[in-house]
Structures are given as structure tokens and as C-alpha cells.
């Protein structure tokens, strides 16, 4: 008798596709569908969502087989925790704090993503990046960023 095992990476991938298919499919239904002759904004997305649902289902189905798949492996939790917020942080602060402090803090946040980075070095690195980026982007390329924003004015 064969052991039925499930390749969880594939199954999860399939589920994600199904989820996206449902998300977009339901929203397409809220749009005007139209006819094949004059397609409305919802027609093509609805078709695509349907295809995505079917594909997701097939992937889940094919994930159930008689040999186990390899696992997901190590996750970069610390990386996720510090790398992803970096651009968000930049977005939240670039207008208020201004370009210079925003880029300094963003680099600092990103630097924390590695176990290897020591705090002092992170500060030095962030400082160097800030000086370089300000010279190149703000003075050199003349991008219209405010160097110091309204939050810093007293």
C-alpha cells in the first residue's frame, strides 16, 4: 500500500492562486460584464479569474501524490521583518521629515535585517548612504525632493 502524502508547498501555492482567483473574480462580478461583442470592464478579468481558479485547483489536486515534496526551507523572518518595512517607512516619512532624514532612517531599518550588522556600523553605513544619495539625487540629478520637511520646522 502506498502512503498518500501531500506536497505542502504545491498545495499552498495552489491555495494562494485560488484565493487570488476568488478575490478578483468576486470583484469582477461587481463590474459591468458586457457581451462578447462589446466587452465591459469586468469581462476579461472574470475570465482570467476563472482560469486562475481552475489552475489553482489543478495545482492543489496534483499536490496530492505518493511522494512527499521538499519543504519550504528556512524563512528569512528577520529579513521580512526589517526589509519590507524599509520602503514603507521611506514612503511615510519622505514628505514629512524630508529626504535626508528619511533616507538615513530607511537605511538604518534595512541594515537591522542582518544578524551580522553591528549597531555602530549600521549608523556609519546609513550616514554614508545619506551623504552619497543626497549629493547624487538631490544636488546631482536635481530631483525635486525637500531635503528637510515640515515636521522638522519649528
Amino acid at each position: 500500500m502506498k502512503n498518500i502524502t501531500v506536497d505542502w508547498t504545491d498545495a499552498m501555492a495552489g491555495l494562494i492562486f485560488i484565493l487570488f482567483g476568488l478575490l478578483f473574480g468576486v470583484q469582477s462580478l461587481g463590474l459591468e460584464i458586457g457581451t462578447a461583442f462589446r466587452m465591459g470592464p469586468g469581462y476579461f478579468p472574470l475570465v482570467l479569474s476563472g482560469i486562475l481558479l481552475v489552475l489553482g485547483g489543478l495545482i492543489v489536486f496534483s499536490a496530492i501524490h505518493d511522494r512527499g515534496g521538499e519543504g519550504v526551507g528556512k524563512m528569512a523572518w528577520r529579513g521580512l521583518f526589517f526589509i519590507l518595512p524599509a520602503p514603507i517607512f521611506f514612503g511615510l516619512t519622505v514628505r514629512g521629515l524630508g529626504f535626508v532624514p528619511a533616507i538615513f532612517l530607511t537605511t538604518l531599518v534595512a541594515a537591522l535585517a542582518s544578524f551580522k550588522m553591528r549597531p555602530l556600523w549600521a549608523l556609519v553605513l546609513a550616514g554614508a548612504v545619506t551623504v552619497f544619495a543626497t549629493l547624487v539625487f538631490s544636488y546631482g540629478l536635481g530631483l525635486p525632493f525637500r531635503r528637510f520637511g515640515p515636521w522638522l520646522e519649528f
Binding site: 520602503p87 530607511t106 537605511t107 534595512a110 535585517a113 551580522k116 548612504v129 544619495a133
Partner: peptide, 16 residues
Amino acid sequence: HVLFPVIMAFCSIGVY
């Protein structure tokens, strides 16, 4: 670990 914070900083500036 020195490179990627720099890359992140430039990506942020670039996209913005």
C-alpha cells in the same frame, strides 16, 4: 550585510 541596506535605500529613492 553591507550591500543590501544600500540597495534598499536606492530602491526606495528610485521607485519614489
